[in-house]
Design a protein around this nucleic acid. Structure first.
Lengths: 233, 233
DNA sequence: AGAGTGCAGTGGTCGGACCACTTGGCTGGA
DNA sequence: TCCAGCCAAGTGGTCCGACCACTGCACTCT
């Protein structure tokens, strides 16, 4: 008898684990449609309200996707789907935590750039170059940040590890970067940033992994050091 | 007037962003108690049901914490709180994605181990040694996995970057590891694992960062290669 | 055959009711 | 006076039933 449900925690929490288990065990495939909210509720012996909370929770985690009027579906469970929440971490972190996040980014980004140097295609390299040029051709901070993000995203993507690319994406979320750069660029660091980006692009063009690793590490490290100084000062 | 709310997306989504913004802007401090569900609902002009969904979503993200009968509180917003969801990613990833996750772990773990070699205290080193001994003193798979996890967690913690430690923790979640190891250990890989762990411990004892980095990279790399072979075979 | 339409089904929202638990003040006795 | 125990108000947890907004499809009309 499974009637004697252990009743651990809230019913909603139980429902969340239940659905997660269904997916983990393969009873639900990526992209597949789930039963109705109403039916799921009945099946798990809980109210629709509680079931909805569980669904909402899994939705923000990037596991489920609800389409109004159509139904609830399992996402593709791609790296991007599941790691989107990583941006929340970056947005809500402050002080010392920001430095730690940048340190993680430096480690991953330098490795990703090194990998990209060995694997990048001509098309991808061209795209990187375009973002570099566009970044240098405008004064609008918004646009600069956008191209900066795209610049690094393209490189991370060329590294061939979508999971790593997704994590780096989260670590460079728009609001996170805007927050740090507001002060960083005020110190005339833009010229240096431009130089560092050029160095990265040059290393990629030369297909030189070690040079690429060093350039990327130095690039992130610069921001990291500046932020560290901000905190102690 | 902000009465003309843009009505973007669902009301629940709006409520989630609203609370997130409150925290990001410092209107809500870590550990602080929020207004009542009922009051929050009124304040945002939505029903309590919708408000509850928003709260539940932020709860699973590790941003809020609801205490039955007491109230809703902002978490400490420590790395561990926010990165707990990382384990979900590891648990739901399969196939090629698992290899990518292990690659990320290899990059971070090797660096973390190198850092630990330079910074680890005698107490921490002793703890690492104890887990190593305990791991070798039993045959119970459950216990082995538990000590293995603790072994690596202690090292990551000694590296001095809590954020990195939290990410590595997620990448080594219990179910994830159990899933991979079931097959890995069946091939008599336990002796090799023991050897690799010993090598890591030796490098830490010698305070040799480069040796520690190499040993950790090789350790994770072994599992990575095995898993890669499983997929292509 | 094609475009347009209507309906059934689904997720989204709402309001209210009651339960389970915590908290702090009140009461009573030592 | 002080402390233990109790009690009531307040809070999150759960449930119910209703209605709205949207989608998709079968059906109709041209």
């Amino acid at each position: 008898m499974d009637e004697a449900a252990p009743q651990k925690g809230t019913v909603t929490q139980r429902a969340i684990e239940e659905v997660k288990a269904m997916i983990a065990e393969g009873r639900l495939e990526p992209g597949q449609r789930l039963p109705t909210e109403r039916e799921l509720a009945v099946r798990l012996g809980i109210s629709r309200s509680s079931m909805r909370e569980a669904i909402r929770a899994l939705t923000v985690l990037g596991v489920l996707e609800a389409r109004h009027g159509s139904g609830i579906y399992v996402t593709a469970l791609e790296a991007g789907d599941l790691l989107e929440t990583f941006g929340v971490v970056a947005d809500l972190s402050r002080g010392p935590r920001l430095v730690e996040l940048l340190e993680v980014r430096r480690i991953l980004e330098s490795t990703a750039t090194a990998l990209a140097a060995a694997r990048i295609t001509d098309e991808q390299l061209a795209a990187v170059g375009e973002h570099l040029a566009a970044m240098n051709a405008t004064d609008d901070p918004e646009e600069i940040i956008a191209h900066d993000l795209a610049f690094h995203r393209e490189i991370a993507s060329a590294a061939g590890n979508e999971t790593m690319a997704a994590i780096l994406d989260g670590l460079s979320s728009r609001t996170f970067r805007a927050r740090v750069w507001r002060g960083y660029q005020e110190e005339g660091a833009f010229a240096r940033t431009r130089r560092e980006h050029t160095a990265i692009h040059r290393a990629l063009t030369a297909r030189d992994p070690e040079a690429a690793r060093a350039a990327a590490a130095a690039h992130v490290g610069e921001v990291e050091e500046w932020l560290r100084a901000q905190l102690t000062g």
